[in-house]
Design a protein around this nucleic acid. Sequence first.
DNA 1: GTTCGTTTCATACGATCGTATGAACTCTAA
DNA 2: TTAGAGTTCATACGATCGTATGAAACGAAC
Lengths: 207, 207
Amino acid sequence: MASPDTRTQILDAAEVIFAERGFSGASVRAITDLAGVNLAAVGYHFGSKRDLIAAVARRVIEPINVAQNVGLDRLLEQAPEPQVADLVSAFVGPLFDEIPADDIGGSRKSLLIMTIITDPAKEMRNWMGSTEAAVRDRYRTAFMRALPNISSAELEFRMRGLLAVVAVDRIEMNNRGTLDSSDELSGVSTRRWAMAFLVAAMKAPSQ
Amino acid sequence: MASPDTRTQILDAAEVIFAERGFSGASVRAITDLAGVNLAAVGYHFGSKRDLIAAVARRVIEPINVAQNVGLDRLLEQAPEPQVADLVSAFVGPLFDEIPADDIGGSRKSLLIMTIITDPAKEMRNWMGSTEAAVRDRYRTAFMRALPNISSAELEFRMRGLLAVVAVDRIEMNNRGTLDSSDELSGVSTRRWAMAFLVAAMKAPSQ
DNA sequence: GTTCGTTTCATACGATCGTATGAACTCTAA
DNA sequence: TTAGAGTTCATACGATCGTATGAAACGAAC
């Protein structure tokens, strides 16, 4: 069953280093040094750096996908056709919930998510699509019922916008978070701002 | 004055390689190989890889900033207080204009822009802020007049959303552009979709 | 206490990285 | 034609990269 300690320590350290330097900019040695474990531990527990990247990404993304699924389940229980605002909240909410804004680990995770989304290494997108695409499909059909005038393609564009706004905002907030002091205030505000911004955007008349 | 050929060939090749592999994932050798020039040419023309990154980023960002400035100038000539839709168009338009959607170089540039925005290497943000921040300030004051009920902080959030939606969309379109065939259609649509989405979002009531 | 699967360790390998160097080449001006 | 600045070239250096290896350490079962 493998001692969970070393494995977890590596995952935690990798999350930090990957967020700081990107996937290819991070060295296995930097990760094992931060984790306080032996260099060879990565090979033993994960096989290769590529597999470590996959494990780290999975650990960050999975709870978000689960929360998005649960949120949509709860909405569909209450009403067969949820409102746009509720769908937006259920979709982007987990990005705020699973990524605490004020602590260091939170900003680290948001950076990591964007690293995952935008990393040029295409390996990511292959193994990620499985569950992530399923969640997005569920939400898209729900959005299609709530916004019958919007075409499927345009809806996909808008859903991408949901993720983009929240993810980029968290990154930017983190970048200045190291300089500014009282970003707790803007941290709480951001969620309200994002909801107002995104709900209005989703409801925009079809173009 | 240095033969502009080699320098430009390096910049062109670096744009491709950086977009494909990220800054730290790209090797100088890969760039010079693609450019068909000698390895040492990077050292001679740019000094170091870091300086090459700066030069590439500057070449991509600068025309966008210029176009954004020109667009705002033109709006302010016509009316002292431009409308929201016009401001949005002038702000995100250059991202479409300077980055053709259908050709390969276009999607490459959009990827590169996102690489610049999100790259964990913080060196970027230092030398970039100079002119970029000035443009954003001009637009923020213009938006503040058009949207007097929105606080300055929330407005900054919303302007970040403008860039995020467009940039992420271009990346995603590029990612699937390699698979799909007829994305010229969605390429043209995207601009209209972005405008509808973003204008509605900017006009959202304050929260 | 000895055995044996599991985990950690120090260490080494070949590849590749960014950069530096000095010779060879090109081209213009005298 | 020659002098010299500007540019390109082949090549090498040390550092660091991901990965592999085999010995040491550990812990539970008998």
